[in-house]
Design a protein around this nucleic acid. Structure first.
Length: 588
DNA sequence: CCGCTACGCCAC
DNA sequence: AAACGTGGCGTAGCGG
């Protein structure tokens, strides 16, 4: 059963709840004051109920603040984007209609928030009751039942006809159920929506962050915090060594332009100041310069300013942007949550009496590729083993590093260097897997669209380049055609990776959803293990110490369940490396 | 003062 | 070394 939550204009500030059956048939409509919303949700949330709402990021934080967790939801904003772009639902009204606020919402939620999604939870205002409509009290066991009013119990009757969320949900159901493969697509919609719940919960709980430990790390590496801004002592010392070594007084090593000039004046043949180019050079400036760059990065990206800006009350709460990456991966904003450097991970410390379970899926994308392509040899290689080491043991490549470079090269579309050189061996060992990525690349090069395992489709490319590269074959050889070819190949690398990265993201979402449900029954109310961090193929759970082993088991079970959910009986394994630690820095 | 791009580096 | 995929973000530098 679905319960759709909305606040259409005619409800005048109150919240409308509609019960719909699994086919989307409306059979009851209720409304309530916004102050009673959390209580109603808590009372109604049960196995079999899926909440349908415009935007989890809008509706869920207020519920969490009031201690209410929900089991399942359907996020209309996120599902709209998937369905509108999905090749499998291309024939639907949803796909053909003109762009609407639902599309703008995905591009910029803030703008849409003003036009489409009312802001009821925050102001706590309740509009006047409409006496003509407050007839019978609901027969639903709700603690604040007095605040409930049933508007209609006639099946199909639709008061509040201006309910855009209801209309959108019905369009989505039609697009989904009428699609080529409603089964997989339904899994994707559910996984995406479960991810939206998780994202809000993780932000609510926050990553436990120990300011004292972070300060200690900074002071050890950089020297004491500068009193009046400026460079920390150790950085200033290195800057002076750089100036001496380059005979460049007053040089600011933070200026790439000036630094490049100074390096060249000192006789170094470099085209940029990046560290990989400097790495192999022999010159007195190299060592202090590389050391300076390392410290500078720490200071600017995760130094004292970062700490003051992003950590409050012992928690770091980044905003996760579900579906923020075209492939379906999450993005994040605020504090660089996608790039917490190894050097500061020691500051992520479990609360007293609690532990952190840190787990990541080993060689996720290659394993996903083996399943996508049905490559039994590749799946077999990874069964019970480190997949990279298995390639060495089978004589495909000679070192584990080569195995890793070769497989990642296949996923990214390497065209040169060591990685490309290893491709023939990989093709020989796993022809089916390699064929899949090559075909995905060719589709992209022709300007076509590819889809993930569950049916998320790649965006349409800009027309210009593939018209030049492909259709307009009369274009004479020359720079314009070369550029078009280059663009085409670049888009091919994107579609090649899209299929694998996007399908891996689907596995990870399923993993996360399963884990979330399993954690909800561990521990005690008020002290349950909870997810606090998720990064592509890695999760972190903050748990009472006593539950840590159960959490690890839940992590592994969820991984296996995600594999079965996506790939059925195909014999691919998704091993998880999981550790119990008291700080994130100890996890690797 | 602002917004923008280029660069460089961190994460997976 | 990586040139091969996806991101965020801080600084410099520039133009308004």
């Amino acid at each position: 059963m679905y319960i759709l939550v909305s606040s259409p204009p005619s409800a005048k500030g109150q919240i409308v709840l509609r019960q719909l059956d699994n086919e989307g048939q409306l059979f009851d409509t209720f409304f309530l004051d916004s102050v009673d919303f959390a209580g109603a949700v808590e009372a109604l949330d049960e196995e079999g109920v899926r909440w349908v709402w415009s935007d989890t990021a809008h509706w869920y934080p207020g519920l969490l603040e009031q201690g209410v967790r929900v089991g399942r939801c359907h996020d209309l904003r996120l599902c709209h984007v998937i369905l509108r772009n999905a090749e499998g639902a291309a024939g639907s009204e949803l796909a053909h209609g003109p762009a609407s606020a639902w599309d703008e919402a995905s591009a910029d939620r803030v703008i849409a928030g003003a036009t489409l999604f009312d802001d009821l939870l925050d102001d706590g205002m309740s509009g006047p009751n409409d006496p003509g409509r407050t007839a019978a009290l609901a027969g639903i066991p709700v603690s604040q039942s007095a605040a409930w009013a049933e508007i209609s119990d006639e099946p199909g009757d639709n008061p509040y006809g201006d309910d855009e969320s209801l209309a959108e949900f019905q369009r989505q159901l039609e697009a989904w159920l009428g699609s080529d493969r409603p089964g997989p697509l339904g899994l994707l919609l559910a996984a995406e929506s479960a991810g939206a719940l998780s994202a809000q919960e993780m932000r609510f709980f926050g990553i436990p962050w120990h300011v004292d430990v972070h300060n200690r790390i900074l002071t050890e590496m950089l020297g004491p915090k500068p009193q009046f801004g400026g460079r920390p002592a150790k950085m200033e010392r290195l800057a002076e060594q750089i100036r001496v070594a380059l005979d460049a007084h007053g040089l600011n090593p933070d200026s790439p332009q000036d630094l490049l000039k100074a390096l060249r004046r000192a006789g170094l043949d470099v085209s940029s100041t990046s560290k990989w180019e400097l790495y192999n050079l022999k010159h007195p400036v190299i060592e202090p310069l590389l050391a300076y760059k390392k410290l500078s990065r720490l200071h600017t990206a995760n130094g004292w300013t970062w700490l003051d800006t992003w950590v409050a009350d012992g928690r770091f709460r980044p905003e996760y942007v579900v579906g923020g990456v075209v492939t379906g991966r999450w993005a994040a904003k605020g504090g660089g949550a996608l790039q917490l450097p190894a050097s500061v991970r020691g500051a992520v410390v479990a609360d007293p009496g609690w532990s952190l379970v840190v787990a990541d899926a080993a060689q996720l994308e290659p394993r996903i590729l083996s399943a996508l392509s049905g490559d039994l040899a590749m799946a077999e290689a990874g069964r019970g083993h480190d997949l990279y080491q298995a390639l060495v043991d089978q004589g495909v490549v000679d070192t584990r590093d080569h195995a890793k470079v070769a497989l990642l090269g296949a996923l990214y579309g390497a065209t040169s260097g060591q990685s490309a050189a290893l491709m023939p061996r990989l093709t020989k060992a796993f022809p089916q897997a390699i064929r899949l990525v090559e075909e995905a690349a060719r589709v992209g090069e022709r300007g076509g669209i590819v889809s993930t395992w569950l049916g998320r489709s790649s965006p349409r490319p800009d027309k210009l380049w593939w018209v030049d590269a492909v259709l307009d074959s009369d274009t004479p050889a020359g720079p314009q055609r070369d550029r078009a070819r280059q663009e085409a190949r670049s888009w091919g690398r994107f579609t090649r990776n899209f299929v694998c990265q996007g399908s891996a993201a689907e596995w990870a979402l399923s993993w996360l959803a399963g884990l979330r449900q399993r954690l909800a029954v561990l521990g005690e109310p008020g002290a349950r293990p909870h997810l606090v961090y998720f990064l592509h193929d890695e999760v972190m759970v903050h748990t009472p110490e006593a539950c840590a082993e159960q959490v690890i088991q839940a992590v592994r079970e969820s991984a296996a369940a995600a594999g079965r959910l996506l790939f059925g009986e195909f014999p691919v394994e998704f091993p998880v490396e999981a550790v119990v630690v008291d700080n994130y820095g100890a996890a690797k």
